[in-house]
């Protein structure tokens, strides 16, 4: 059963199509990572899902309720960690969570929720003095109030240190174990790969990829890169290398030769071609596509190999 479903969802701001025909489908009980660089349309999508911004076309349902006409019903059953939110500086953490619990008509103990997000020692402090990470934790505690069926978390890790991000992932996992569905957005692949069942990647208002992490990886043919340390670079060597069937490109900065190879092409012909020119090979570095390369490739449309080569030993 799908928890979130959009059909050809669109939103224009003047001439700009912020979201341009989005078909999303998030299943019950899954952790869905909603990815894309800043400005890809993620926030506009979430704003439409929550009723902050009306769509200019298409439709959407959450928990079988229409996002435009039944928003209240949706928000009764959804926990929201918004993006770019501000706290009530003069109210304590407890008052914030109390407000969320009351509004949700729930019975949670605010102190317990705050303990859970790691704000146990700041329960009665005014939130005006909180760091970004602390306000992020506070917002998460508010989102958790009332055991929502769906959690919509917009960039939940922003402002959190690595430890905080790990705790955030831990809580997300606990919530899913309880039976919740989690939809969260991020501009970084790294944060979602550890826990997401599926990811959807937005680019210029459209969903350009949607799959499991493994599915995305296997569907992505990535060139591998070689960095070969050399003592000299004879004129003919680049020409010869480019002549090889498996080589996409070869460049040099006179200390190294950088070679871009077809995926899983044998490397031995490359080395022999270089040595045939009387060159002594020094260190050799290789790099295969990382998830970030994959992400960059999908969201920018450029082959990641065209970016400056950085070789991991």
């Amino acid at each position: 059963m799908s928890i979130i479903q959009t059909r050809n969802l669109r939103r224009r701001f003047g001439d700009v199509a912020a979201v341009d025909g989005l078909d999303l489908e998030v299943q019950r009980g899954e952790i869905y990572g909603f990815l894309g660089p800043n400005g890809a349309g993620k926030s506009t999508t979430i704003n439409m899902l929550l009723g902050f911004v009306p769509p200019t076309g298409g439709s959407g349902t959450i928990l079988d309720a229409d996002i435009e006409t039944q928003s209240l019903q949706i928000r009764q059953r959804t926990g929201v960690l918004p993006e770019d939110f501000g706290v009530y500086d003069r109210l304590t953490a407890r008052k914030h969570v109390e407000f969320a619990v009351d509004t949700k008509n729930a019975a949670d103990d605010p102190a317990q929720l705050l303990e859970r997000v790691g704000l146990g020692d700041a329960i009665d402090r005014k939130s005006g003095g909180f760091s970004t990470g602390m306000t992020q934790r506070l917002a998460l505690a508010m989102a958790l109030a009332g055991e929502p069926e769906l959690l919509i978390l917009d960039e939940p890790s922003s402002g959190l240190d690595p430890n905080g991000a790990r705790e955030m992932r831990q809580i997300v996992t606990e919530e899913v174990d309880r039976g919740a569905t989690v939809f969260f957005s991020s501009h970084s692949m790294e944060q979602v790969e550890a826990i997401c069942d599926r990811v959807g990647i937005m680019r210029e208002g459209r969903l350009v990829a949607e799959d499991t992490i493994d599915g995305l990886k296997s569907g992505f043919s990535s060139p591998s890169k070689l960095r070969v340390g050399v003592d000299s670079v004879p004129d003919a060597v680049l020409q010869r290398l480019r002549g090889l069937e498996s080589v996409i490109d070869a460049r040099t900065d006179s200390r190294f030769i950088y070679i871009e190879l077809e995926e899983e092409a044998p490397k031995a012909p490359v080395f022999s071609t270089i040595e045939d020119q009387g060159v002594t090979i020094g260190e050799i570095g290789t790099k295969t596509a990382s998830l970030e390369d994959l992400f960059a490739s999908i969201t920018t449309g450029e082959r990641s190999a065209e970016n400056p080569v950085e070789v991991r030993q």
């Binding site: 928000r75 918004p82 770019d84």
Partner: peptide, 17 residues
């Protein structure tokens, strides 16, 4: 004021019309 500070996202992210 809540629109400018962003706290309106709490107000309206919670089930308030």
């Amino acid at each position: 004021g809540e629109r400018e500070s962003g706290s309106i996202r709490f107000l309206l992210g919670l089930p308030n019309t």
